[in-house]
Nucleic acid binder design. Structure first.
Length: 856
RNA sequence: GCCAGAGUGGCGAAAUGGCAGACGCAGCAGACUCAAAAUCUGCCGCCCGCAAGGGUGUGAGGGUUCGACUCCCUCCUCUGGCACCA
């Protein structure tokens, strides 16, 4: 055979064209006799910067799995699309006047071309784009369903208003009180907003997590976000007035230790309760805390503030009067916006009580042992000089109204107090969640319009399904008004609406939906992307759902995944989808970091000032020694790796293989271009081996056969568990064994390798498969099977240890029994020498592995 | 502060109770070459030793076990998330 170079460029172009022209990866619904496999990637936001090396990591993993599943006879749904609404395109439009639709289309084309260059086996006929009216028509339709079900409502709520950007921002877009883009200050401002009642689904969103095959870490993050707590609501009377205040507490057992009460500054009863003497001070305090930005709130975290209202509440178990304070460490948005303060057993209350000299009454004697472990003095707690939040024994907790919990532990006391309160009708057990309703409107242009019209009569009208989509109007000027009025308010003609039936006039809703909307249901649209009569037809939905595997970055651990689950559950309740949960299995790929450098003072040094020498890494400017460390890729450090460059130099197959070889998919790992050269060498070797070594139809030796079957087993098992890195290692071992200049290569060994490697390096393997004489694509060739019997060896090397120290290695039959092993081991000269003058206490035999002789 | 995850050679890592460091990168030595690239061969945790060999070693300390990177307890460090949620 003639020498051929591994021309990855020609090979990759050839097969990408082949797949495209032959629609190799077009998938049909309802394939007979094939199990389905729905494998989903988190679709990208097509930014102007193009793909970075993080995107292909997850995409490569899913592509390998999809190609493997096809070879195993699965009907595989593997689609791609674009999450294209969002702020960057709109900002760009404001700056340049370029319509976001144009920017978006340009970016999508770039992304599509970059993704195709990696040879992913997507069914491109199912591509979706959230900004396409044919798509967002159904996003609007789902909103209609939410609205009809009473899950969408308008409320005046405080939002993150950024005056510099002239828009509200979501909580995720605000970092330490500054806007994520531009770093402008953000203030709280009440505005009329659309909200979605996600809180109504809090319990199910929490409970159904248990059935999902997600990492415990992600599930725990969702649980914490939903933040369920159980406790009690207790009614306190305000002395000398008819008012009652309900507080929420998780520790009703500590009621005897409640020495004051705190209301949130925004609590509606503050005005009613405040005494004339305190009115001025309270008003001032409320004003101050209302003005506090998010940044102030986080920074002032440490120091507690508050003022006395002058009013007193009556502790319902002691009958004692306790002062009512106003303080912003109590949040109006959680619980009832009012608390009973138990400084002896709550760290925040303790801090506050110390600062304002409020009484501290200990009513739980700490467990001695746990107090010692926590470094807390029991005497100090009993004297009210220290705070104890752990378990213990109740003291000073009895009254003459039939309640006595002295001596009980916390758990029993909680139950007893709740029963007592319920009996008296002044309290009840209660469940609270941290989860808040979802602020669902934005004052932006580049988002889905709401299917809502405000009629002249004041009525809010939901548009008929036949009136969808409400298409975004063309605008010349995308700038926000600065008043909080959305840019759509400028689309004068579009705004006017006339009801076809009644002739009534109205004005369209000018807010748009947040970027999350489109991504809440895209996995359903892939199933039936062209359907103009429904978001998805029921038969197809039943066939494909749920998503069997969902892969994406952990940055969406809470929000996207929670929002999508919420919508899915609503659609489930309405009978539009057949599964309770959308994503059965979820895997989060770890971030790929760039190599970064810092100088002696710890200052970051950009890549272009870094010089590599044999002795180490130095700064080109100062000549000082630099330290290498992995950090997030960033424009400022100039350490962003562009996949295009990698593909140009080493090819898409090397790029794919390297990203999988770096380490476990879920681990965070640093990029090292030198590593790409390693897998590139491996692929060159495979290419050379099959093209240049004499290929013969010869029988494999027993050792070769064992390696072939062991490799099939290892690669198969590793693919099932998504351990791509070790599967690649095994194939390297295989190639190291079979390759060599002039060495005869058994045809079976060659074919098996090409089949096993095909999901990882599909272009090269299609080419090699063809050169091995196959006319069909390898994409649907049968996955090799292994024979467990061929993995077995007649004899194994067994390690003989004396008291744990290796002393000899002995070949023994695999099925040797303990007696035989022991005898053989004791017969070894080195073993006998080591046992000289010692008594054997015990012999441990592990068949096929080792013999350990314990002697003294 | 709370929750989760992770700490193994110069580097990415492997081994989930049985010979730590497979596989790869970098490095060193050699072959081929006028030379370079590519390719091939060998070495490659640390310490002592010319070597044979010995000692030591998976963040630290303790425990369970014939045997621990792996299981249990305490602590330290790093990463991610949440953060006055009563």
């Amino acid at each position: 055979m003639t020498e051929q170079e591994y021309d990855f460029n020609a090979i990759e172009k050839k097969w990408q064209t082949f797949w495209e022209q032959n629609k190799t990866f077009k998938v049909n619904d309802f394939e007979l006799g094939k199990p389905k496999f729905y494998c989903l990637d988190m679709f990208p936001y097509p930014s102007g910067a193009g793909l970075h090396v993080g995107h292909p990591e997850g995409y490569t993993a899913t592509d390998i799995l999809c190609r493997y599943k096809r070879m195993r006879g699965f009907n595989v749904l593997h689609p791609m699309g674009w999450d294209a609404f969002g702020l960057p395109a709109e900002q760009y439009a404001v700056e340049t006047g370029t319509h976001p639709a144009i920017t978006t289309e340009r970016n999508i084309n770039r992304f599509r071309q970059q993704i195709k260059a990696l040879g992913f086996s997507y069914d491109w006929d199912r591509e979706v784009n959230t900004t396409d009216p044919k798509y967002y028509r159904w996003t609007q339709w789902i909103f209609s369903q939410l609205y009809k079900k009473g899950l969408a409502y308008v409320a005046e709520v405080p939002v993150n208003w950024c005056p510099a950007l002239g828009t509200v921002l979501s909580n995720e877009e605000v970092i330490n009180g500054l806007s994520e883009r531009g770093g402008h200050p953000v203030i709280r401002k009440p505005m009329r907003q659309w909200m979605l009642r996600i809180t109504e689904y809090a319990e199910r969103l929490l409970a159904d997590l248990d059935e999902l095959d997600w990492s415990e870490g992600i599930k725990e993050m969702q649980r914490n976000w939903i933040g369920k707590s159980t406790g009690a609501e207790v009614v306190f009377e305000i002395a000398g007035s008819g008012h009652k205040v309900t507080v929420y507490t998780t520790r009703p057992d500590t009621l005897f230790g409640a020495t004051y009460m705190v209301l949130a500054p925004e609590h509606p009863l503050v005005d009613e309760l405040v005494t004339d003497g305190q009115r001025g001070e309270v008003a001032l305090y409320r004003e101050q805390s209302a003005r506090k930005s998010d940044m102030d709130r986080t920074e002032l975290n440490t120091e507690k503030t508050g003022v006395f209202t002058g009013a007193y509440a009556v502790n319902p178990v002691t009958g004692g009067k306790i002062p009512v304070w106003v303080a912003d460490y109590v949040l109006i948005s959680y619980g009832t916006g009012a608390i009973m303060a138990v400084p002896a057993h709550d760290t925040r209350d303790f801090e506050f009580a110390c600062k304002f000299a409020l009484p501290v009454i200990c009513i739980i004697e700490p467990d001695g042992e746990s107090a010692v472990a926590a470094g807390v003095s029991v005497d100090a707690v009993l004297a009210g000089k220290a705070c104890w939040t752990g378990d213990g024994s109740l003291i000073n907790s009895a009254n003459d109204m039939g309640l006595d919990i002295n001596g009980m532990d916390v758990e029993r006391a909680v139950r007893t107090v709740i029963e007592w309160l319920e009996g008296k009708g002044i309290g009840r057990s209660a469940v609270k969640y941290k989860l808040r309703d979802w602020l669902f409107s934005r004052q932006r242009y580049w988002g889905e319009p709401f299917p809502i019209v405000h009629m002249q009569g004041g009525e809010t009208k939901l548009l008929e399904d036949s009136e969808l989509p409400v298409v975004l109007p063309e605008l010349e000027d995308f700038k926000p008004m600065g008043t909080g009025e959305p840019p759509l308010a400028k689309a004068k003609e579009w705004l006017d609406y006339t009801d076809q039936a009644t002739g009534q006039k109205g004005v369209r809703e000018t807010n748009t939906m947040p970027q999350w909307a489109g991504s809440c249901w895209y996995y359903l649209r892939y199933i039936d992307p062209q359907n103009e009569l429904a978001a998805v037809t029921s038969e197809k939905e039943k066939y494909w759902m749920p998503v069997d595997l969902y892969v994406g970055g952990a940055e969406h651990a809470v929000l996207h995944l929670l929002y999508a689950r919420f919508w899915h559950k609503v659609l489930f309740d309405l009978g539009y989808v057949s599964t309770k949960e959308p994503f059965q299995k979820l895997v989060n790929q770890g971030m790929i970091l760039g190599l970064s450098y810092k100088d002696q003072r710890g200052a970051l040094v950009p890549m272009e000032q870094v010089e590599h020498r044999a002795e180490g890494v130095f700064s080109k400017l100062t000549g000082e020694v630099l330290t290498e460390f992995p950090a997030k890729m960033s424009k400022s450090l100039k350490n962003v790796v562009n996949p295009d460059d990698v593909i140009r130099e080493y090819g898409a197959d090397s790029m794919r293989l390297y990203e999988m070889f770096m380490g476990p998919l879920e681990a965070v790992k640093p990029w090292n271009t030198k590593g790409v050269e390693g897998v590139f060498r491996f692929l060159k070797r495979v290419h050379r081996m099959i093209n240049e070594q004499p290929l013969e139809k010869v029988a494999l030796t027993a050792d070769q056969n064992r390696l072939v079957h062991a490799t099939i087993k290892k690669v198969t098992d590793d693919l099932e568990s998504m351990s791509f890195n070790t599967a690649i290692s095994q194939m390297m071992i295989y190639v190291n064994e079979f390759s060599g200049r002039g060495k005869v290569l058994p045809l079976d060994a060659a074919e098996t390798l090409v089949l096993l490697l095909a999901p990882f390096a599909p272009h090269l393997c299609e080419e090699l498969w063809q050169s091995l004489g196959h006319n069909e694509t390898i994409a649907y060739a049968a996955w090799p099977a292994y024979d467990e019997k061929l993995l077995q060896v007649a004899e194994v090397e067994v390690l003989v240890q004396v008291s744990g120290k290796p002393k000899a290695r002995v070949m023994m039959p695999c099925e040797a029994d303990n007696g035989f092993m022991q005898e053989l081991a004791l017969g070894q000269e080195t073993v006998r020498a080591a046992l000289e003058g010692k008594t054997i206490l015990k012999v441990v035999c592990v068949p096929g592995r080792l013999v350990n002789i314990v002697a003294k």
